[in-house]
């Protein structure tokens, strides 16, 4: 039996790890990322002559939990045609038996890297609103993401915001024909007993998600009870991260009261106390950006005055300056 040198061992591992795309329309360019379920490669679609992202399972076989999950993820993405959700192009099995799908190749940065160069809180909030749009759309189509976090959001080179990695998504109900003009409508809400059939590949009570971003019910493995409010918890944690640059586990710096109230409501441990739907959360953030009162925060008179001042600061100073000038002019004339 032949002895393998360390170099040969490394070469064999790397070589055998590469997906076999021989005879397909794709040509591998390089590895982009490696996740819990598979590996993402940049590839060239030689037929259409465009770059795509090819996500492939590490293990061969079109059966088994991971293969089912990858195929499911592709099908979930296929039903979510939205500018904020990465579009899927193709799904299948490679000659080496590994399940794969291809999707749009997003040239950009992960959100956690992108925001390092983004100092302005309003800019960050506007990105958050676009994430909310995509998630609200998915909810309207009966799909929960279940792993919303900065690493799963990409910001493209033209500022487009894309929610990625739907591998843990849970399909609550088949509502593929929901009215596209009704972003708030038809949001599936499960009754207490679970109600709508769970078609998730991870619905066996096992805990899947990211600590700090997953809701308490998700962390307890209560997959049957998950609904839109579970993603709202994750969005709240993501909002905190956007505003503070701190992971949820870290002690958080003090925020503006309204924003703090929005985060607190989104991340309430009891889901009944959270926003009922993503558009409600987005509405509060929009109102904050417009200098209006938010539903999550009951303001005192001082808060109202402070908000009024913040909103009309320019005009207040303009009028004050005008009045001051008038007074000075009158005094000057009198003397």
């Amino acid at each position: 039996m032949r002895h393998l040198s360390d170099k040969a061992l490394t070469r064999l591992r790397s070589g055998a790890d590469l997906p076999d795309v021989g005879g397909t329309r794709y040509r591998l360019i390089g590895q982009v990322a490696r996740g819990g379920m598979g590996v993402v490669y940049a590839a060239e679609d030689e037929l259409l002559q465009r770059r795509v992202a090819l996500k492939v399972l590490e293990m061969p076989g079109s059966e088994g939990e991971l293969a089912n999950r990858l195929t499911r993820e592709a099908r979930v993405l296929a039903r979510l045609e939205h500018p904020g959700i990465v579009p899927v192009h193709d799904v299948g099995t490679l000659p080496d038996g590994r399940v794969f799908y291809t999707m749009k190749f997003v040239e950009g940065q992960r959100l956690d890297h992108y925001i390092e160069s983004l100092a302005s809180a309003p800019d960050r909030l506007r990105i958050f609103l676009r994430i909310c749009d995509a998630v609200a759309f998915a909810h309207a189509r009966g799909v929960l993401h279940r792993d919303l976090k900065p690493a799963n959001v990409m910001v493209g080179s033209f500022g487009e915001v894309l929610v990625m990695d739907w591998g843990l998504a849970k399909i609550l109900a088949d509502v593929t024909h929901a009215e596209p003009n009704d972003p708030c409508g038809n949001i599936p809400r499960l009754p207490a007993n679970g109600g709508i059939g769970n078609t998730s590949g991870t619905g066996d009570g096992r805990v899947m998600g990211t600590p700090g971003y997953m809701s308490p019910e998700q962390a307890r493995g209560e997959t049957e009870l998950l609904d839109a409010r579970s993603d709202i918890f994750s969005l709240g944690a993501l909002l905190r991260y956007l505003l503070t640059n701190q992971l949820p586990a870290h002690p958080l710096p003090k925020l503006d009261r309204s924003l703090e109230a929005i985060c607190a409501k989104a991340c309430a441990p009891e889901r009944e106390r959270r926003y009922a739907a993503v558009p409600d959360l987005a509405e509060d953030v929009s109102r904050y950006l417009d200098g209006l009162a938010v539903s999550a925060h009951r303001e005192s008179i001082f808060d109202k005055l402070a908000r009024f001042y913040r909103r009309y600061r320019f005009f207040i100073w303009l009028i004050a300056t005008y009045l001051l000038m008038r007074v000075l002019l009158i005094l000057l004339i009198k003397h």
């Binding site: 591992r13 790397s14 055998a16 590895q31 490696r34």
Partner: peptide, 18 residues
């Protein structure tokens, strides 16, 4: 078992690759 197989396969092929 299958879980161990999945983990070991990742160890075998997943590391140092790419």
């Amino acid at each position: 078992d299958d879980d161990e197989f999945q983990r070991e396969a990742r160890t075998a092929f997943g590391r140092n690759a790419g």
